[in-house]
Each structure stands twice: as C-alpha cells, then as structure tokens.
Design a protein around this nucleic acid. Structure first.
Lengths: 123, 123
DNA sequence: TCATAGAGTTAGCCAAGACTAACAAACTGC
DNA sequence: GCAGTTTGTTAGTCTTGGCTAACTCTATGA
C-alpha cells in the first residue's frame, strides 16, 4: 500500500458505500470493486495499520479523519472530472472510467486550474 | 509488459531520443528515464518480442511501424495535454508531469473531446 | 599488446497488489 | 441445537516492473 492509487480507490469505495448503507463490510467492498475477499481483507489490514480506517464489531469499517479526508478529496475529483468530461460530450460511462483514472494522478495545481477554467466557461 | 503505461513510456522515450540523435542505444534510454541498464535491457527484449522495436548493430534501437504509431500517439497526447495545462495557468513542470501521467490513461474519446474543446475556446 | 572503459546481458532479488485454496468463526433456519 | 451459509483470515502463488551483482564482449589508447 505504498502507492496511492490502490489506497485511494479503497477509501473512495468505503466512502461511497457508507453513504449507501449504514455499515460497510469487507464483502461489500469486495463485491463493489470486483476483488476477491482475501485481497480486500489484506487491504483493510494495511488501511487499518496506516490509520485510515477503524473496524468496529457493530459499525463495520469506518473511515478515520485521515481516511475520510483522502476519500472525500478523491470523490470530489471524481465527480467534478466526470461532470466536466460529460459536458465536453464524452459518454457517461467513458467519462466515469477516465475520471476514475485521472483522479489519482493529477496534482492539486492541475485540478484547481481545470476547475477554474470550467467555472469560467460554464458548461 | 502487459500493461500499457510502461511500454508506452519506453516507446515514447525511444521516439524522443531518435529525434535528438541518429542512433538510440539502451544506455541512452537508461540515462533518460533514470532506470538501470538491466531494466532497460529486459524491457527492450520484451518490446522486440512484441514487435514494437528492432535492433540493428549499426542503427541501434529502431521503432517498427507498430511501435512508432503508439509512440507518436502518446507523444502527441503529451505535447497537447502539456500545452493545454500550461494554457490553464499550470506551471510548466507540473503541466509536463501531470500530462505524462494522464497521457497513458485517457481514452481516445476523452482526448478528442478535450482537444475539440480547447480548439473552440482557444487559449 | 594488453589494460581498461563502456555497453549490454544474465541471474537472481524485491515490493505491490492481485489471485485461489482452505480454514475458522459467526449467524440463520429448520 | 445442529447444519449449512456467510464472512473474514491465513497461507501461499503469480505478474509487473523495478533493482544489484557479476559477467561478456567490444573498442580504445598507452
């Protein structure tokens, strides 16, 4: 879990799932992301070690402050980038797929610049 | 060499170096990319197996048609994306760095849409 | 001519992040 | 209350793509 992309995807997924249902379990993440249970289990272990999530027998998997900040940041990028690509005429599926890749790699500088541009030119 | 990013970076580098000097050698790629000689050596083996490059004792490493098409496509994206980010006010280094990541991941659809948008709105 | 430098390869290692197989523990329903 | 399902973990494998160490081969120059 040294590189960001994988971690960010897991955290983003936890955020999305926590908005849909009250508790988030490993198996839900597993289904949502299409990864095997052991893969998710190990990832959760690393996220817990890193202080990004906590596990509670009642609440399931919960984002810590640190984890939530990352998740919300990535999710915000995801939504914003998807909307922008759709506004440019890209079909929704491709827009979401591409946004999902771009969201992990671009710098804050670039993201802000893109956001400002689209604000100026509208949709 | 199953995923595209690494392959595309090598091919792009070979294209760039072949425009700068007459012949391209492994060690040039090694220096340019900051990778060790064995890493480049292995990558060249895989690119050769895949039909992306050929090696000639006189000409050094040469892109095949297949390799050149990918390299030129990626390089075009790189240049275009970099220019656009710079036009949005991103500093040149960040623009180049971010373009270098984005160039490998976005679909043709998205790239075309972005290009069309910027053509319309100018810089 | 022979030493040394430079280029490239071979062999083997490592980390990240997926996977399956198999097990353990807990919850559910008859 | 016990059987069977669901959930999660452990153990170990695979692939990608880096790395170092150590070798070979070629070319150069004193």
């Amino acid at each position: 879990m040294a590189y960001d992309e994988s971690r960010e995807m897991y955290l983003e997924t936890i955020l999305i799932l926590s908005r849909k249902s009250k508790t988030v379990r490993s198996v839900d993440i597993s289904e949502y992301m299409g990864y095997s249970k052991p893969s998710v289990s190990r990832a959760m272990g690393l996220l817990k070690d890193g202080g990004y999530i906590e596990e509670d027998y009642r609440e399931g998997i919960v984002l810590t402050k640190k984890g939530r900040e990352i998740a919300e940041n990535v999710y915000d990028r995801h939504i914003t980038l998807t909307k922008m690509l759709e506004a440019l005429g890209v079909d929704p599926k491709t827009a979401a797929d591409d946004a999902c890749k771009i969201e992990h790699f671009i710098s804050d500088t670039t993201f802000s610049a893109i956001k400002a541009h689209f604000k100026k030119f509208g949709e």
